[in-house]
Design a protein around this nucleic acid. Structure first.
Lengths: 184, 184
DNA sequence: TGCAGCATGTAATTTGTTACATGATTAA
DNA sequence: TTAATCATGTAACAAATTACATGCTGCA
């Protein structure tokens, strides 16, 4: 699923401008999708050219006109066709794991720092997701709750795994890695 | 971490040809990294041009000469520098979750099929990883065991989550989706 | 005084995928 | 006879990232 298709989908329930779509990506989809303005704006322009969305310009003062995009019937059909893919992909790309694979080439303090940072990132993700779940409320669409829950569970599992298995990568206890060891 | 850097890393302990590196990616890194010949061969050629690896051609009969690449001291240094990245990224890209977000636009049988397929993919991943863990043996490098374990845990967590939360997306019980319902 | 938020875009670059091109050997 | 394994590569294409370009408002 490319940025163009996902933008189209985001417009199913509510019209929006590119800036708003970016915010929405960052809140709802942060843990499994990302897109910058450099891909969103061209995507919306393309969708408009193909007639899958319509654009209305709202004059602003002191900043560029706000371009509000609304999905068309053609757009709705195109999006539903796009959802028909079988075995939609689900891929992890992790430089973190790649680095850990070679952890024997790193010094222990560095390994510990990377592990701590990754745990923190996972914990931040859990928190971020729980805050958007709160915002959504209990009456949010099932799909939204399902994907949020998935993200939370996976992030939690990742953090737990690192805590339970970091001993595989370091000989000494983790402890306060930024302070000098009191033993020497 | 790009394909070039990871190829370099794979050559740290053992020289290999492009074909072998691809196999290695597919077994050890399958769950967090992928690369096709279309990126591996050019990557190795680049590394050789930069002097980070050396190439030795072994004549073959009935097939192209085997090009065996060996890392140089420059290569080793370059790779260790590459490992110094702080907060190496760890990103999920999931069309599966994107589709599920919009599950209300799909019919229930399709949703069930997608969920089943994803569970199966996760279970396959768990099995694949457990088979490479067996191959590696207990004396494998810590990093290798750590990343394999991570993959297994995350795949397991994904499958479990779907099983426990699929009811959010479908009103009726999952059951045998490929057979006609006996109730009509 | 400076930064975050709002609001749009283009162009260069990077990176990787897919299709194409070749072809012997071996096991089912 | 059909598919998988071994073994290399190029070229076209797709997609997204990053840097560049602009500029007001409001808060601390």
């Amino acid at each position: 699923m490319d940025v163009k298709t996902l933008c189209l989908g985001m417009l199913i329930n509510k019209e929006a401008c590119g800036y708003e779509l970016k915010k929405k990506f960052e809140s709802l989809f942060k843990h499994f999708f990302s897109a910058g303005y450099g891909s969103i704006y061209p995507a919306l322009a393309d969708l408009a050219t193909s007639g899958l969305v319509e654009c209305r310009e709202i004059p602003q003062t002191g900043r560029p006109d706000r371009k509000v995009y609304k999905i068309t019937d053609n757009g709705r059909n195109a999006f539903e066709r796009a959802l028909q893919t079988n075995e939609p992909q689900h891929k992890l790309r992790s430089d973190f794991l790649a680095v850990m694979y070679f952890s024997e080439l790193l010094d222990e303090r560095r390994v510990n720092r990377l592990l701590n940072d990754r745990i923190e990132a996972f914990e931040d993700a859990v928190e971020h997701i729980s805050s958007i779940e709160t915002e959504m409320g209990i009456n949010a669409p099932a799909g939204a709750r399902f994907v949020a829950g998935f993200g939370a569970v996976i992030a939690k599992a990742g953090a737990d795994y690192i805590e339970s298995n970091r001993h595989l990568l370091t000989e000494t206890a983790p402890g306060r890695i930024d302070e000098p060891a009191h033993g020497g």
